[in-house]
């Protein structure tokens, strides 16, 4: 489906597109007349918003891992578990499958998300060795998968509402659940703030190199 030299962006054609309903308007239009969505050719504050949510997201992710997520009390024991601690304990009991689900959902995915969002935001400024389509795919994966980190908060909610057996056993949510939920919400907002159209805009860096090469050719 690749048409060489054929694809032009709405911006290059002097138009501005609505990202909600795909309708196109003359440049400078501020509100889409079809769906009422606010439109902007490129949001110049987008990268700042991305980084702002990214930083608070990361700030919440630290206590989410250090503080206890659950505290369990049975007749014989009372213990508090962090996210990783809980997963390790499950693995020790032989529940490898669930331990892996928890580690992937609450450690691997959040860490990967922070790394990918940061890399994408930097690639807009400084260019990237990765192809545009690859970066677009990465962005879509992050946007899709981000919500799934919430799974651990739901597990804590379920466990602590279910295991309320008076003196026999009780599970109480720990402070980490709050921080973890906030961290997931903030990183979702960070990913949503990113304007993926910027991946496809001609790179400022590449432009500069091309211009320099042209000048050299002329001189030579």
């Amino acid at each position: 489906m690749e048409i060489p030299g054929g694809v032009r962006s709405a911006r290059e054609a002097g138009l501005v597109a609505c990202q909600r309903c795909t309708r196109v308007w003359p440049a400078g239009t501020e509100v889409c007349d079809r769906c009422g969505h606010t439109i902007e050719s490129r949001d110049h504050l987008a990268l700042q918003k991305v980084w702002a949510w990214w930083v608070v997201g990361l700030a919440c992710y630290v206590p989410a891992n250090v503080l206890p997520m659950l505290s369990t009390r049975t007749l014989v024991i009372q213990q508090e578990n962090t996210i990783v601690g809980g997963a390790v304990e499950l693995a020790e009991h032989g529940n490898w499958g669930v331990a892996i689900v928890i580690l992937v959902a609450s450690v691997l995915i959040p860490m990967g998300k922070f790394a990918v969002i940061a890399a994408l935001a930097m690639s807009v400024r400084h260019g990237s060795s990765m192809s545009r389509i690859r970066r677009q795919q990465l962005y879509e994966v992050v946007e899709y998968i981000g919500r799934w980190s919430m799974i651990d908060v739901f597990v804590v909610a379920l466990l602590s509402s279910l295991v309320q057996l008076g003196a026999l056993a009780a599970i109480v949510p720990g402070p980490a659940s709050l921080y973890f939920a906030l961290s997931v919400i903030f990183t979702m907002l960070s990913a949503q703030s990113f304007d993926s159209r910027m991946i496809w805009d001609p790179d400022a860096v590449v432009d500069k190199q091309a211009r320099a090469a042209e000048l050299r050719n002329r001189a030579g």
Partner: peptide, 25 residues
């Protein structure tokens, strides 16, 4: 979808732009 080069004055209602990458069609 085939990319297009819009002629000035063409009806904008017939065009759409990709919401993810801004390509015009």
């Amino acid at each position: 979808m085939h990319p297009t080069t819009p002629i000035p004055g063409e009806d904008l209602a017939d065009l759409i732009a990709c919401p993810k990458c801004d390509a015009l069609y």
